[in-house]
Every structure is written in structure tokens, then in C-alpha cells.
Design a protein around this nucleic acid. Structure first.
Lengths: 300, 300
DNA sequence: CATTATATACTCATATTGAGTATAATAAGG
DNA sequence: CCTTATTATACTCAATATGAGTATATAATG
């Protein structure tokens, strides 16, 4: 009897932002995240993950960080004996054209989480969700107050402010309330596209991590091309945060932190006055690995 | 051939602060962290870890959060076949008297990391360490500049400020420079007490996480008794951060965030004017699970 | 009652942040 | 060429947060 033996699985939340659209790399036409077993031939967890992503999506991966390790009892249905442990990673890339013409597996974040995009105001799907949440709150006479506070807090209801970082908490609340398909509910519309097993939860974990991290670390630049305008940079951050930002303050913060430097060239495809092109000052990574990037999350 | 099979191990960094001394629970007289295999009988990773801690240390565990998952090739020396995956957790507790008179495995953080405690000024061991680091910097003519910047940044040398969060980066630098025993060096003094396998690295990961987290989440209270004075709270934070804080500003921040409420009683054992006793306002966890606790890290 | 020690209140300069207004540089339409 | 639309960039200002003090309060001790 081998105590402690388990199946180790690697899962990737690979993210890019293309045309102001935050996307995640998927397999099976958008139903699952790239994944595969951790094998003896893999040098490390990271390199194992890189191999699976290369094999399943043929997309190069740059920045990679560990997200979370899951081991749910109901994850090993199909597998004989042992348990399955899933080690998930967040990867940041620039979207590349698919090699060989195969369809690339990019899908928009907000296809899975339509209630998370507040760039054009509060999304309409929230009305429906809030109504169903209210029923869920009301149905339990004992925990009603607790449920009320939790719903208010996570979804920014009744004077609470919307907090873009609470992606995972919102998903988990919807799951508990039986409002997403993975929870075995029969409802269909407005709850976002489901995914295989717990992959949507893992995506939520990655989104939450990234939304939180862009505020104190210069990771956005992993998603940017070599040269970019400040507005492009802002639009990328906005796409991730699902919010619009104050333009002038955004520039002020980026520039005063010396995160970027002018290339000298300008971009005039933007419509109005041509914008200066910038590049990321890689030197900053050494100068202050941890000193952090603050992003002005002053709403518009 | 079972592809993807691995040994799953759970490791705990269990921390308490007793008498202004941050401590970690150990086994084997301080040589290792509590750990054990993830077994079929365990419902979840967390509950498996709780069982191992209970069995090996008999200490109750409250707050628990996942730290990191490791899988190094050199971790499975003794075990036949497969790899070992270590899933580490950070636990926060209040130190309890050992049941049955067995010696409890509490050891001070700074026994393992003597260079991390700056509460009484820059620790003397740093002189030695810096000298050896300088040799390490100088010995490589090619990467000298890079090494210089890295040493300066992580240890706060040459005008760089000491950043208490960089516990792991400092340990890793010392490891790479061959200045800790785990790296196979022969030196003895001033490099802190080593631990079994990579347990000291895992402890560093936990310390770094906790030092970072107390700044934006009210987790310190997990380490406090039910009622406490503001100075006791401050001393606990200082013990963790390895720094002294500005007393008046500390109070201002704690109070204006409404993290605590007066119990009505006072504590007069402190020497001077009796201090009001406070308790943590648990309600705040619901009110703003994520709104955060800011700690004034203005040095004294 | 002076001394010592801690607790708590209040002050003040500076930095950061949120939210604007004003001006500059381009393209397109008439 | 002039107006309008559109984007870029500079500058202002009030509110708040932060770092670093000073001042006062309440106890114990000798």
C-alpha cells in the first residue's frame, strides 16, 4: 500500500491582452485550460508546465508564476486509485499568430465571467445575478444576515463599492448559491460560460491574482509589445481590471515611477495628436525588484 | 508505468509570537518542520495538514493558508521511484502550554535567520555576511555588477534601504553564494541554524509571506490573545517585521481603521500609566474582507 | 513630591491621491 | 484656410495620508 501517492497535474492560466480584450488560452474549443501530468522527465514543475503548454498550444510562454495547488476529492473520478493534485500557474504572454493555421485557443475572460467587465458601466447581467442572489439570501432564515453582508460585500451592493479584486470570492459565492452550471444548476443565461471540472475556478484565481498584482508589481509589461503609447498601456490595465481609469493620473503615476522611457518615435495612427512611444525600462527590475508599481485605480 | 505519480507531502510553517519573540513550531529538536504525506483518508490538503500537525505537535491550529508547492529533483533521495511534491502551509496560532509535559517544539525565527531581526539596530552578524558577500561579488569578473546590485538591493547596502519583506530573496542569495550550510559550505558561524532538506527555505517563504501580509490584512490578530493593549499589538507586529515602529502613528492607524474596540478594562501591569485593553473587532472581517490593514512602517 | 515609565492626545510639514481645467498637435470636412 | 473632432500632454487644487515630532495624562516607586 503506497501511502501518499498521488497524480500530479499541471494547469496553466495563460493570459494575453489583444485589442483591449483580456484573453485566456484554452484547449477543447474553450472548454478547458491547458494541462497535463507532471512527469519524471520534467526537471521542475515550471518546466513541466512549459512543455505541456508548448505541446497543446504551441504558444511561447514568458513570465510564469505559481498560482495555487488544489486537491479535491471529486477531481479524480476517472482515475484509478490515488488522488489528483493540481498545481496551477499563471502565465503572461503577448498573443502570437497561431503557427500552421491551427485555430488558436484564445477566449475572452469575460465570456466566462461576464459580470466582471465594468469598463462600460455596470454590466447588465448583474441585474439578473443580483435578483437570484437576493432569493438565495432570503431562502435561509437563519443565515440571512450573513448571506446579505457577504453578497453586498463581494458584489458591491447596498452602498458597498465594487472591488475588482474579488473575482474568486464572487465566483465562489455564485457556486455556493447554485448560480453557475458547474454547481449542477439548471439555469442557463447570464452565468457565464462554464468549463471542464474546476477550470473556471482556476481561471478566476488567475484573474484575481493578476488584478491584484498589477497594482504593486510591473507585470503589465509582460503583456505589452516592445513599444507602446501610454494610452495603450492604460487600455491594457483597464482590460485586466475591468474598469476605466483616470487618464492624467495614470500617466503621472507611470512617469513618476520611471517605469518607462521614450523611444523617441511617435505613433500617429491614433486619430488625434500623435502619441509618444515608450518602452519598459527593464533596468527597473533590478533597481527595485520589489519596490512596486502603483496603479491609480481612480474610477472614471 | 505510472506517469504522473508522485509522493505528496504536506509541510507546516506554524507561527506564534510569545513574549515579543516570533517562533516556529518544529519537530526533531528544531531541525525540521512538521510534515507528513497526503493520505487517502485526508479530506482536503488543509485537513491533512491539520492532522499531521495535531499528531506531531499536539498543538491546535486556527488560521491556515497555502504557501507554495515545491518539487525539486533532489528532494526524493530516500524514496523509491516517483517524485516528491511538497505543499506548504502557513499557520498562525497562539502558543499553548505543551500538553502532557512533552517539550514543545517552538524555536525562535531569528535562531534560523539571525540577520533578519533589526529591532535593536542592524544586527552584528550582518558585518560578517556582508564581507563574505563582497568576496562572492568580486570573485566573478563577468557578473560582478549584477551581483553587486543584487546584494545591495536584497541586503540594503550602499544607500539601498533595508526591505524587511525580502526574507526569501536574502536566503536564496546566501544559498547561491554558498554562505549557508544547506548549500554544502563548510563555514559555521553567523549563517544561522540550518534545517533538514529545504525546510529553512520554506520557513523563509512563510516569514516573507507573513511580513508582507500584515501590511494589508488583519492577520496579526490571529496571533494575539483575546484582549490586548495597543503596545502589545505593536510589539507583535514589530517582532514579525523585525523592525521597531513609531508608536503614535501605529495607534492612529489601528484606531482609524476601526480594527479594534475597547473592552472597558485596563491593564496596569505595564509599569506606567495603565493601558486600555482592546479586542479585535471580528465584524471587520465581514465588513471588508479585503479592505485591508495598513501598518505604519515608519522606522524609529 | 520628584522621578520614571508608560499611555494617549495633538500638531505640522510633506507626499500622495482623486478630480479637474487648460492647452497642444494632429486629421477631416467644408 | 478655418472649424470641428479627437487624442495627447501640462498644470492646478483640494483632500487625505504619512512621517516625525511635542505635549500632556496616569500610574508606580522611593
Amino acid at each position: 500500500m503506497t501511502i501518499g501517492l498521488a497524480h500530479a497535474e499541471l494547469i496553466a492560466v495563460l493570459t494575453a491582452v489583444t485589442g483591449n480584450d483580456p484573453r485566456v488560452m484554452t484547449v477543447r474549443s474553450g472548454d478547458a485550460l491547458p494541462s497535463g501530468p507532471f512527469e519524471l522527465g520534467h526537471r521542475t514543475l515550471q518546466s513541466g508546465l512549459r512543455e505541456w503548454v508548448r505541446e497543446q498550444t504551441a504558444h511561447p510562454v514568458g513570465y510564469l508564476e505559481q498560482l495555487y495547488t488544489f486537491a479535491d476529492r471529486d477531481r479524480n473520478n476517472e482515475i484509478l486509485g490515488g488522488r489528483t493534485i493540481s498545481i496551477s500557474y499563471l502565465g503572461l504572454v503577448r498573443e502570437q499568430p497561431a503557427p500552421g493555421g491551427g485555430r488558436p485557443g484564445w477566449h475572452g475572460w469575460y465570456e466566462y465571467f461576464p459580470w466582471e467587465d465594468h469598463r462600460h458601466g455596470r454590466p447588465a447581467v448583474l441585474d439578473d445575478i443580483v435578483e437570484r442572489l437576493n432569493s438565495w439570501v432570503a431562502v435561509d432564515p437563519v443565515r440571512r444576515d450573513q448571506r446579505r453582508r457577504r453578497a453586498d460585500f463581494t458584489f458591491g451592493l447596498n452602498d458597498a463599492a465594487w472591488n475588482e479584486d474579488l473575482v474568486l470570492q464572487r465566483y465562489e459565492l455564485l457556486y455556493e448559491a447554485g448560480l453557475v452550471l458547474e454547481a449542477g444548476c439548471t439555469q442557463q443565461s447570464n452565468s457565464g460560460r462554464p468549463m471542464f471540472a474546476d477550470h473556471r475556478r482556476i481561471l478566476a484565481t488567475g484573474m484575481a491574482r493578476l488584478r491584484a498584482k498589477i497594482k504593486y508589481r510591473p507585470v503589465v509589461f509582460e503583456l505589452m509589445p516592445e513599444n507602446f503609447t501610454l494610452l495603450q498601456l492604460q487600455r491594457t490595465v483597464e482590460a485586466l481590471a475591468g474598469l476605466t481609469l483616470h487618464k492624467q493620473n495614470f500617466r503621472r503615476l507611470i512617469e513618476q515611477q520611471e517605469l518607462v522611457e521614450e523611444t523617441g518615435a511617435t505613433e500617429s495612427e491614433t486619430g488625434g495628436r500623435p502619441a509618444k512611444l515608450f518602452r519598459f525600462r527593464r533596468a527597473i527590475l533590478e533597481e527595485r525588484e520589489l519596490a512596486g508599481t502603483k496603479l491609480p485605480l481612480s474610477r472614471n
